[in-house]
Design a protein around this nucleic acid. Structure first.
Length: 422
RNA sequence: GGUGGCGUGUCCGAGCGGCCGAAGGAGCGCGCCUCGAAAGCGCGUGUUGGGGAAACUCAACCGUGGGUUCAAAUCCCACCGCCACCGCCA
């Protein structure tokens, strides 16, 4: 949520930001109008209410005929106050509804444009040249079968398209990735968390996933629960309605959870394999910090993501995501894209967003900073999203016979140096 | 799922329908005392919104939402959460 006071004073900045995202700049003026209506309604109601408060007190001490007369008048006043209160509530609700529709203000350094207008920040490592090894790389589906690691056919049989089983070394690889991720996160001061994956509407709304992202969220109609698409949701909502001690910041949490995504509108995209699935596990980093520290923290999160990919010995690049492709909560976002040999392309494997105070305002998470209470900043970043990391590892570290070398960093967690054929 | 109890400020814990934003205590902050500390004493200590340059002032908030009333923390209803016991189950 945007700070209404900031918006009142900087409407032009907000219009520019909305335009940059490809969203409606006219919304800004609707919000400003609604805010004026809201404040007028408040003034009217409060004046009447104050009058009623004074009046009510005089009733108590009166008696006899005088009291009967006062009671009559009180009834009339009561009606008027009630009407004014209703108008006030309506005005507040509609102002709030509009305000919630506004996306976060863009970071001025974020590249403007659509999905394709990202800026490459750096390339790390060099894609392996398979012609030098004189064999054509197999894709992860084929490797997964040869190793007994991934079973997409049975996944489809049991749950439908975009489901899979991780079996044998596939399952072990997930455990190793998670253990490696959590143990390195703890070294950086993260608190490990296993959060709930079913959440109630306020958590989902607060994190900003019920706007344009709503179509990708699973909803349990009967119980009004949402299945989270990322543990960002329960981690952000962890401190909902709380006031944090600013001296304890930054607070860093590493959440391990299953993630559920409907993948609506991606029919025909990545239908093969486990690049795009309805359910997967992920270790997510989440930070609560002072707004003035957010930008530096964003760089730190990015660095931890890079460290992870380097430890997996995978070539990748970092992109600065363009304005039109940011989530509504993010002011800026960096993606790490791993090299996928059989696609001859870089594909997103991790992503980190700076939401500044946007989510915190919606979730009512504040900090006590000296005399003042003000919203904190929140940031999130993927440490490892299991299926995509498995794809990257299998495809990049395969040998001509279909066996796969285990990256050094994972060997202690797996107890093996190579995945063998089954 | 059934029955009973409870939900008040950072925490504990009072609260005849008006004088209750709310006693008392703990904690915290400042000061006194002390060589220093503890104890003791004194003072202070919520959030949100509106108006105001500010001092300040007004309004709202006692789980949430409705209702009754001139007036609700206090009465009524619904919902949510917590605790206890019973039933069922991992």
């Amino acid at each position: 949520m945007i700070d209404i006071k900031f918006l009142r004073e900087n409407p032009e900045l907000m219009r520019v930001s909305q335009t940059g995202r490809g969203e409606d700049p006219g919304l800004v003026d609707l919000v400003i109008n609604a805010d004026e209506v809201r404040r007028e309604a408040i003034v009217k109601f409060e004046a009447l209410r104050a009058e009623q408060n004074v009046f009510s007190k005089s009733v108590g001490s009166a008696k006899g005929d005088e009291k009967t007369a006062l009671l009559e008048e009180g009834k009339k006043l009561s009606l008027i106050v009630k009407q004014a209160e209703q108008l006030k509530t309506q005005a507040e609700n509609s102002a709030n509804e509009l305000l919630l529709q506004l996306s976060n203000i863009l970071d001025p350094s974020a590249p403007i444009g659509g999905e394709a207008d990202f800026k490459v920040i750096e390339n790390v490592g060099t894609p392996r040249d398979f012609s030098k090894d004189s064999f054509a790389p197999k894709d992860h589906v084929e490797l997964g079968k040869l190793l007994g690691a991934i079973d997409t056919e049975r996944g489809a049989k049991v749950s439908g398209a975009r489901f899979y089983y991780l079996t044998g070394v596939g399952a072990l690889l997930e455990f190793a990735l998670v253990n490696y991720a959590i143990s390195s996160a703890m070294k950086s001061g993260f608190i490990p968390v296993i959060p709930p994956v079913l959440v109630k509407p306020p958590a989902m709304e607060g994190t900003g996933f019920l706007g344009q992202a709503a179509e990708n969220v699973f909803h349990l109609e009967e119980d009004d629960f949402y299945l989270v698409g990322t543990s960002e949701v329960p981690l952000a909502a962890f401190h909902m309605d709380e006031i944090l001690n600013s001296e304890k910041l930054p607070l860093r949490y590493a959440g391990y959870s299953t993630c559920f995504r409907r993948e609506a509108g991606s029919y025909g995209k990545d239908t093969r394999g486990i690049i795009r699935v309805h359910q997967f596990d992920k270790v997510e980093m989440f930070t609560f910090c002072k707004p003035e520290d957010a930008e530096a923290e964003h760089q730190r999160l990015l660095q931890w993501e890079k460290d992870f990919l380097n430890a997996m010995e995978i070539p990748f690049r970092v992109i600065d995501v363009a304005s039109g492709d940011l989530g509504s909560s993010a002011t800026r976002k960096f993606d790490c894209e791993a090299w996928i040999p059989t696609q001859n392309a870089y594909r997103e494997v991790t992503s980190t967003s700076n939401c500044l105070e946007f989510q915190a305002r919606r979730l009512n998470i504040r900090m006590k900073d000296g005399q003042n209470t003000k919203p904190v900043a929140t940031l999130n970043g993927t440490l490892v999203a299991i299926p995509r990391m498995i794809v990257a590892i299998l495809e990049n570290h395969q040998n001509s016979d279909g066996t796969v070398n285990v990256p050094m960093a994972l060997q202690p967690f797996l107890g093996m140096k190579r995945f063998e054929l089954v």
